[in-house]
Computed example of a mutant assay.
Amino acid sequence: MNDHATDLATEAFIAHRNLLFTVAYEMLGSAADAEDVLQETWLRWVEVDLAQVRDQRAYLVRITTRQSLNRLRTMKRRKEAYVGPWLPEPLLTAPDVAQDVELAESVSMALMLVLETLSPTERAVFVLREVFEVGYDEIAAAVDKSPAAVRQIAHRARRHVDARRPRKVVSPGETRAALESFQRAFETGDLQGLLDVLAPEVVLMSDGGGVKQAALRPVVGAEKVVRMFVGGAGKVQGRLTIDPTLVNGGPALFVRLDGEIDGIMAARVEDARITGLYYVRNPEKLSRVESETPLTLR
């Protein structure tokens, strides 16, 4: 490829980079792996004869999807050997992500966890169709299936996700209010306040990756969750501070110990109570919580 063609390829890649990262991240749940996929996409893109490409955006999305699918299959083995629950890598996001309801829901910790229950191909088809509104023919080319097969996969994946996703979209204000109540009760040691803001069937998932202490299985039930938080806080050596933040398009809590990052806590809220708490403590997953990651559906 000559210098002019390389410049044109670079220009197109940069123009669509945030979109490609968002596609890869929604398919993988890992920013580090998404960055690797973008590197692989770039290496393939610079080998393409641009004169033969009718739609550069669609072509780049296709390459990114194929590379993400390859990566998903290798990640599956990695996750099977993972210590304790595996949670998506949290991203600090700008307020405009929270204002885009579709984008915010698509990268929410709750939905990303539902996507983890799909097969790699189902996840790719669901993300491309439901989130990015890619046509069936284009998805078929990306996943090496017929358009008819893609329609069936999309229907199956949609039904699976709809059965497990939150029943209704909750406003950021409602989530923020629930997290503020949780934070206030935790900081003041108000056990009843904690029980009041947690739904009776609340599930806590904590991801330490075998590096930081975390529950090896989901903790179910408000009383057990409260016991775990209160007991854990009692063992902390140092000053624990909690601050509100915006992660994956929604309100979350930034937990620090003596000023150093300890973890990020996101929540799933329904009917003004917390039904899911997702606490990421694995240091390898906390590199994207201090500077904003740009995400886009377009």
Rank of each mutant, 00 (worst) to 15 (best):
A32Q: 11
D33C: 04
D33F: 06
D33S: 12
E35D: 12
D36T: 02
L38T: 08
L38S: 04
Q39V: 15
Q39T: 15
Q39L: 14
E40M: 13
T41D: 06
T41R: 11
T41Y: 09
W42V: 05
W42Q: 12
L43Y: 10
L43C: 09
L43S: 13
L43D: 14
R44K: 15
R44V: 06
R44N: 14
W45Y: 10
V46G: 02
V46S: 08
V46E: 12
V46D: 09
E47F: 09
E47K: 15
V48F: 09
D49A: 09
D49S: 08
A51R: 13
A51I: 05
A51W: 02
Q52H: 12
V53A: 09
V53C: 09
V53D: 11
R54F: 10
R54V: 15
R54S: 15
R54A: 15
D55E: 13
Q56A: 14
R57V: 07
R57N: 11
R57L: 06
A58E: 09
A58V: 07
Y59G: 10
Y59N: 14
L60V: 07
L60P: 10
R62S: 14
R62K: 13
I63C: 00
T64V: 13
R66T: 04
Q67C: 09
Q67H: 07
Q67I: 00
Q67N: 09
S68Q: 03
S68F: 03
S68H: 00
L69C: 05
L69E: 10
N70Y: 12
N70I: 08
N70A: 14
N70S: 13
L72E: 13
L72I: 04
R73N: 12
R73H: 12
T74S: 14
T74D: 11
T74P: 04
T74A: 11
T74E: 14
K76R: 15
R77A: 14
R78P: 02
K79Y: 06
K79E: 12
E80Y: 08
E80T: 11
Y82S: 00
G84Q: 01
P85G: 07
W86D: 08
W86H: 03
W86A: 00
L87S: 00
P88N: 01
P88Y: 04
P88E: 00
E89C: 04
P90C: 08
L91D: 01
L92R: 13
L92H: 07
L92Q: 14
T93F: 00
T93C: 01
A94N: 10
A94M: 11
A94Q: 14
P95W: 04
P95F: 02
P95K: 10
P95M: 07
P95L: 05
P95G: 08
D96G: 02
V97G: 04
V97I: 12
A98Y: 07
Q99P: 01
Q99C: 05
D100V: 09
V101P: 03
E102Q: 15
L103F: 06
